[in-house]
Amino acid sequence: MARHEFSYRSLHGAPRGRQRLLFASFLVLVIFAIDIASHGAVRNAIRSSESVLWRATASVRETLLGGAYFTSKRSLATENASLRTLVADDKARESTYSALADENRALREMLGLREREAGITAPVVSSFRSSPYGTFLIGASESDGIKNGDIVLTSQGFVLGRVVDVGNRTASVRSAFASASRIDVLISNVAAEAEGHGSGNARVFVPRGIMIATGTPVISASFGQRPIGIVGHVVSDESRADQVVYVSLPVELSTLRYVYVVPSNQ
């Protein structure tokens, strides 16, 4: 039986499918080049759409992630039994009330932070875990006074990251603990370098003799001596000269709805 030999060089006279694939490959590169040449016109449009989509699906996500779907089996059974008795209107009203209560709480916390530091409260308009580059979007832009380099904080005053790209309707924030990022930190008055691991986690190596307690705040000079996390776990091995300190943000990123943006010079 004759064996078909594959060759990339045999594109001349290739089936239409491969020609289409070749055309599409060039097209995506052209679109990317257009975006760069237009100073991000394409990405601004896409990020604005993401912002609208994120807000439009807020109640659905709230129901899926905050509701009964991810609770224990027992509570699920109880929830199911009670849900059967509820009419559709009641469910919708409860969901709306819950969403508003959460929003109210988040805004109250932001108000407390605002009294301490001058800045802008901005909604989070994208997922924290979808980005492979350790970024997320906030619903504030240049017209709101956002600038590249501004520092983004949680309502408790912990640093989330820095604004790196300001668009027409959204701004892109790179997490302080983005994967492979390196940042100078201070733990219990010991200077060290933290390696970002994404999702608000980092790892720091410090000399073994230094006592570091769980819950100790971790400060960063590059973020204006603000806390960027707390010590979650310390692993010390007698065979090694250093100990590993695992640092994390004391907030659940997926539940964050608002952030506080302060100028970098503050």
Binding site: R20, L21, V28, F32, R43, R47, Y133, T135
Partner: peptide, 20 residues
């Protein structure tokens, strides 16, 4: 599949999440 949509999904990821 000879999925050209994969190319556009890759582009979408970069345009949405990539920063300078």
């Amino acid at each position: 599949f000879r999925a050209i949509e994969v190319l556009f999904i890759g582009l979408l990821i970069d345009l949405l999440w990539m920063t300078p």
